[in-house]
């Protein structure tokens, strides 16, 4: 809370470095998207880069590094339920009675060919 002015000035330098890293990673993620990966690979790469950027913001700009334990616990709980919210509906989608049929999408021209 009460850092000395020198510490704060050190932090400011760090903030600039993090900012530059975030900008570089933005360029990287755009550049990578021009490489024709298979879709799962592209998703993986994009999410890894976004995850890195996100954790940089959370750790340094939001000062999560060095934050109190109670905040960690609250966030850990949130992350767990976030994953439940994301994963279980997807599992439910893959686990259904019979063959899963999707009706042709009205604006998908290739729908007939797909079947």
């Amino acid at each position: 809370m009460s850092e000395s002015p020198e510490e704060v000035r050190d932090h400011i330098k760090l903030y600039w470095k993090i900012g530059i890293a975030l900008l570089v990673l933005t360029v990287v993620t755009v550049a990578v998207s021009y490489i024709e990966f298979a879709v799962p690979m592209a998703i993986l790469v994009a999410l890894i880069i976004a995850g890195t950027k996100g954790s940089l913001v959370a750790s340094y700009f939001m000062h999560l590094i060095g934050e109190r334990k109670s905040i960690y616990w609250a966030l850990l709980l949130t992350v767990f339920f976030f994953l439940v919210l994301i994963i279980i509906p997807i599992l439910g989608h893959t686990d259904t009675y019979g063959v899963h049929k999707t009706m042709p999408n009205a604006n998908a021209p290739a729908a007939e060919a797909h079947d």
Binding site: I88, P89, G92, H93, T102, M103, P104, N105, A106, N107, A108
Partner: peptide, 24 residues
């Protein structure tokens, strides 16, 4: 979902959604 018919007429919507998603 796509292909939804209400009162003898197909709904003019893009479709492709999931009614189950609401329930989840």
């Amino acid at each position: 979902p796509s292909g939804l018919v209400v009162g003898d007429a197909a709904l003019e919507i893009s479709g492709g959604g999931s009614p189950l998603l609401w329930q989840h």
